[in-house]
Nucleic acid binder design. Structure first.
Lengths: 214, 214
DNA sequence: GTGACCATGTGAACGGGCGCACTAGCGTCT
DNA sequence: AGACGCTAGTGCGCCCGTTCACATGGTCAC
């Protein structure tokens, strides 16, 4: 493995999926070569940033020409670990959890939902969008045996930390938290959060402080 | 209005809702005073950062004591523009849009969903979680007359930019985009995005590059 | 009233990421 | 074959945000 590429800045990592999506669009349009400028436009960023970001992956471009779309797409997929599926478990079988299970985008992009967990005994044993619901108490056992790498928390805030602890105990390496609360995980476990109300509150701030336009 | 506080860093604005939530918890627990250290722990950040962030709002703390929870909560709500409701419209009546409409967290936090828009004529005229669904073609007219300030895009990627343009034309000042694509809005309009698959792909990267632990 | 204590508020150093602008090098056209 | 044009790759300065450490100023006990 190339060693110089080690440690890609977090900001760059967060942009890679955006580039990836852009590349996928180009493939659909049968476009074989793309310049950093074009890619920048599609991804909504600066061209220099694109070139710097891509340079972390290696020298996959050709000066005077651009990047080979398919080759770059492959390299990026490999770097992002998307050449194989990542089984995902969703914890929380309420509104949000069910919606996420129903959301086809996960499986389609290589993150099949292989299990759900809920605290409500009435739902345990039933299937949501074809996925069997287990009880929250069985997270450690089941998640480990299913080889879950990524856990999605879609529980109420009050249960989130406890669920996170269980997921970590089950050997899950990455957690995506939808619960509106701060949770902590040990070093070595990745954590990202999505907070819907929080986003709206941020927008509210700017809305409130907007210059009164004439 | 205080003038020195103008221009609060974006990173700070993004943290304010987290502090707000922490303060709300403290109120529930009947705790009247809080130190930056305690607040930092609850919000999962550094204490110095808390103090600097709060100092942008004004000098609402008392040296030697801490911050008065209720007073700070009020000031922060005011700054975030949460002292009044912000009517929201959701565009996209599919899986995600319906889930968002059903998600009680919005209304509960001061963002009542007052209208939905969908491209599917079969859904137009029906109600989702009590909210009437209009046709996408009527966004400009309806959103303007309902005084919508914030628009939520929950359409497929292909329709997102067109919907965004319509929302802007209707006078919407803030857009929250759930569609997995990059959209652009004019200067003066706020834009935030939530991309579920993107978050998983980022996690996938770190999962793939994790040191193989013994 | 006075002194010790304590937490805020902030100046300043530090670090990371961003973008400009230049260089390197490939392809093409004459 | 040589020169030109185009685009990747990158060094460098800048700016924003974070963090440390200190001074400021209020509270409480005696």
């Amino acid at each position: 493995m190339s060693d110089r590429a080690r440690h890609i800045p977090e900001a760059t990592v967060a942009r890679l999926p955006v580039y990836l999506r852009s590349l996928a669009e180009l493939v659909d349009d049968k476009i074989t070569t793309v310049s950093s400028e074009r890619l920048a436009e599609m991804a909504g960023v600066n061209a220099a940033k694109v070139r710097k970001d891509l340079s972390y992956l290696g020298s996959y471009g050709t000066r005077g020409v651009g990047y080979d779309v398919e080759y770059l797409l492959f390299q990026m997929s490999r770097e992002l670990g998307l050449t194989h599926d990542w089984p995902v478990a969703i914890v929380g079988a309420g509104n949000l959890g069910s919606a996420l299970a129903n959301y086809g985008g996960f499986t389609q992009r290589g993150f099949p939902v292989v299990a759900m967990f809920g605290a409500d005994r009435a739902k345990v044993g039933h299937r949501v969008h074809g996925v069997l619901v287990h009880h929250t108490d069985d997270i450690v056992e089941r998640a480990a045996e299913l080889g879950i790498g990524i856990g999605v928390i879609a529980t109420p805030a009050s249960a989130a930390q406890d669920v996170a602890d269980k997921l970590v105990a089950a050997g899950v390496g990455s957690v995506l938290n939808f619960a509106p609360t701060v949770i902590t995980v040990p070093d070595g476990v990745s954590l990202r959060k999505v907070d819907l109300a929080l986003e709206l509150q941020i927008l509210s701030f700017y809305q409130e402080h907007r210059e009164p336009t004439a």
